[in-house]
Design a protein around this nucleic acid. Structure first.
Lengths: 249, 249
DNA sequence: AAACAAATGATTGTTGACAATCTACTAAAC
DNA sequence: GTTTAGTAGATTGTCAACAATCATTTGTTT
């Protein structure tokens, strides 16, 4: 049956959809999400300069919303801003990554305790499935397959903790860490089996409802991840120097 | 001796200073700081609407920098944005405060462990001084004097942990919590003595370098603070309903 | 040829104007 | 008297132009 044809002529549905999206989201938010996606996915690599006019052109918006999105991304740690020079995808130094790992360990410890207390059967099943797929990727020593599973595992666990404020802070931290880990992930194949064992033990502790154990295992899991990172980097030091974080604006 | 009088005529030094500030900081940053100050200090109370044009007028800037500052404040959790309706000083509900307290407990636990490991004599002395002043305010049951000391105590401890990433996340969390605590702080006089004892025990654990103990004491200190808050609120429930956090932009 | 200086081009910072949306008020209908 | 439609005003969302700053290149001097 034909669509009702009222006062305005029938426009392409793609256009209708775009209008609908704009009713709920500002251009700033859409730009912010898109840039966030590009940064997290690695499309924009660490240190890359973000040109306002260029991005505005590509996304077909003016510079206003782009600048607003920049401020939000800066605050969330994904870019850094240098006055009169521009914004750049943040580069996380080894020292910073080391610090951030500690914060993540604390948050993950809390996630473990809360998840052990509150997790639902459905989430537990998802975790078991993920671990099963991890074993496959582990036997193949395939980092490309393992990495997304790792992300998903901690994502599910974070949601199972049932604390929205915790989840928001956790994801911000993980995003920052991923800025760093991307470049060493390919060299970390050797640590996959150990990591898989960790995940299995964590799921068991959570399933038992052992808050203390789950919290401790997750804390140590993150810390040993940090140590692995540290070791890998000192076997083959990073190719280029990384700048500091000082921002003048 | 007279100042050098070169090409431009001698302008008021206040103006010169303003120029100097602008060389290093963008208007957006200055607006952001000023609004942050007003929100944290309580000059702008929770739920208050922030009118773009009004603020721009008061601070003598155009709406652009104000809007950019809004995006940063939104990301840091101090305001919430509703598309086409405006931005409001964030109201933290009881449920949210409860969640945030858990996150803070985890971060404070880490702060305790790290501070016990790394604290310098100077910082330790500052902590002892603060606790001494706390005892005075405690005997007088004077929340107005105690509150800033409490803030300062945890600030010094946070810095002593020697982890910049941790400190940044911690301060964001504490800022959010203060949005909530302000309205119950006046009713919490009764819990001051217990809180002071906590602080004293924490300083001793840090001084001994007992990481595990310091971490646990700080974790429990925050959790019992949460419980006190909870109890106070249920003796005399909050005066008005608080809205949710859902944001549509 | 190397180093400094000036000028040109590109990019960011800021502003004011216009368009879209919401809010509050008025008036008409039931 | 309450509700609903309509309208006027205020506020936010977006854009394009202007000003200030930075980067690069060109030209000059030693």
């Amino acid at each position: 049956m034909p669509r009702a044809k009222l006062l305005p002529p029938d426009l392409p549905s793609a256009h209708d959809a775009a209008i609908a999206v704009l009713r709920e989201h500002s251009l700033t938010t859409l730009v912010q999400r898109e840039l966030e996606r590009q940064i997290v996915s690695g499309e924009l690599e660490a240190g890359a300069k973000l040109n306002e006019a260029e991005i505005a052109g590509e996304l077909r918006v003016s510079r206003g919303p782009v600048r607003e999105a920049f401020r939000a991304l800066d605050q969330s740690g994904l870019v850094r801003t240098e006055k009169n020079r521009g914004v750049f995808v943040r580069q996380v130094s080894l020292e910073e990554a080391y610090e951030i790992y500690e914060v993540r360990a604390a948050l993950d410890g809390l996630i473990g305790r809360l998840a052990a207390k509150r997790i639902q059967p459905a989430s537990l099943q998802r975790l078991r499935d993920i671990v099963k797929r991890m074993h496959v990727a582990s036997r193949a020593l395939d980092p490309k397959a393992y990495f997304p599973l790792n992300i998903e595992f901690h994502e599910v666990l974070g949601e199972a903790a049932g604390n929205h404020a915790l989840l928001v802070n956790y994801q911000r931290i993980v995003n920052e860490l991923n800025l760093y880990r991307r470049e060493v992930i390919s060299r970390s194949a050797g640590s996959i089996p150990a990591s898989t064992k960790d995940h299995e033990a964590i799921v068991n502790a959570v399933a038992k409802g052992d808050e203390e154990l789950a919290g401790r295992l997750l804390f140590e899991h993150v810390i040993s991840g940090r140590e692995r990172l540290h070791r890998v980097l000192h076997e083959t030091p990073p190719s280029r120097a990384r700048d500091g974080r000082k921002v003048t604006t």
